Simulated scan of single mutants.
Amino acid sequence: MGSTQQRFMRRGVTKFYFLSTIAAVTNTPTRQELAAGTDLSGAISDIAGWSLGNSPIDTPDLGSTLTTSIPGEDKADASTLTFYEDKAGDTVETLLTKGEEGYVVILRKGDVPQSKSMDVFPVRVASRAPAYSAGSDPAKFTVTFAVSDEPTLDAAVPAAV
């Protein structure tokens, strides 16, 4: 890897979209579905979660003092997006109301067609809460998502039209 690896920072590269529907059972959007979604990237101030964890199951046996394990259940981490509030509009608030179902699509390396860097999380909006401050902080609100089905990870970004 060494010197040929091209490192980057996520800010300005990674894209977050919210899509209302994806037709394919694989949960991989077409270019048209991605274009019809809402690009949330420019309004996001903070990101948490958006990954899977596993709870290994211990498998001790009488033949060894070592407690081995096998993979157990997968669970999505608590996943949130924190947004800047828009004083002139409410596009994100209207889109992400409590109970809204859809897909959070993350293009980890940006919109690079055929790059296997797209993650798709089927979600339901669990809550949306404003953050209040008397300080000189920008106005923000946090949306908490419940991951409602198995995410599709490392999918190919759809080809450009």
Rank of each mutant, 00 (worst) to 15 (best):
S69T: 10
K15N: 09
Q32F: 07
D154W: 14
A129Q: 15
G110N: 10
A43Q: 07
A23W: 06
K140W: 00
R124L: 07
S51V: 01
A156W: 05
A160D: 14
T94Y: 06
D90T: 15
I47L: 08
S51K: 10
T68Y: 15
D154M: 11
E150F: 09
A126G: 02
I57Y: 08
E93T: 09
T30K: 04
S41V: 10
V92L: 04
E150G: 02
K98N: 14
G102Q: 04
D86P: 01
A146W: 01
K87E: 15
T152E: 01
D39R: 01
F83C: 00
T142M: 09
T91Y: 05
T21Y: 06
V104S: 02
I106T: 11
S3I: 13
P151H: 05
Y17E: 05
A146R: 02
N27F: 14
S127C: 14
S20Y: 07
L96V: 04
S148L: 00
T91L: 13
R11F: 10
L96W: 03
E93N: 02
A24I: 12
S148E: 00
D61M: 14
F18L: 10
V105T: 12
N27C: 13
T67M: 05
E33R: 04
V157E: 08
G72R: 09
L153E: 13
D137V: 06
G89S: 15
L107F: 05
Y132W: 14
F121I: 00
P60L: 08
F145T: 00
G110S: 15
T94M: 09
V104E: 04
D119W: 01
L153P: 13
R108H: 15
K116A: 12
V123T: 02
A134R: 08
E33C: 09
V143T: 04
A126D: 11
V125R: 04
P29M: 03
T30R: 03
R108P: 03
S136K: 11
S64N: 13
D74Q: 12
I44W: 02
L96Y: 01
G102K: 06
K116T: 12
V112G: 03
M118L: 09
R10S: 09
L52D: 05
D119K: 14
W50G: 03
M9I: 11
R10V: 08
L34C: 03
D61Y: 14
G102C: 08
A146N: 03
T67E: 07
D58L: 13
L62P: 01
L81A: 03
V25H: 12
E33H: 10
S20T: 14
T67I: 10
T67K: 08
A146L: 05
G12N: 07
R128M: 12
S148H: 04
D77H: 03
A23H: 08
G99H: 11
Q5S: 10
D137W: 06
S55M: 09
K116C: 08
T82Q: 12
T26M: 02
A131H: 00
T14R: 06
D90E: 15
I47K: 10
A36Y: 09
R10K: 10
R108E: 10
K15S: 06
A160V: 13
K98M: 08
G63A: 15
Q114T: 15
V147C: 06
E101F: 00
L153G: 11
T38G: 02
R128H: 06
E85P: 02
K109D: 15
V161L: 14
L153A: 10
R31P: 04
A134L: 07
P138F: 06
Q6V: 13
D119V: 08
G72K: 08
G102N: 04
E150A: 11
D154P: 00
V13E: 09
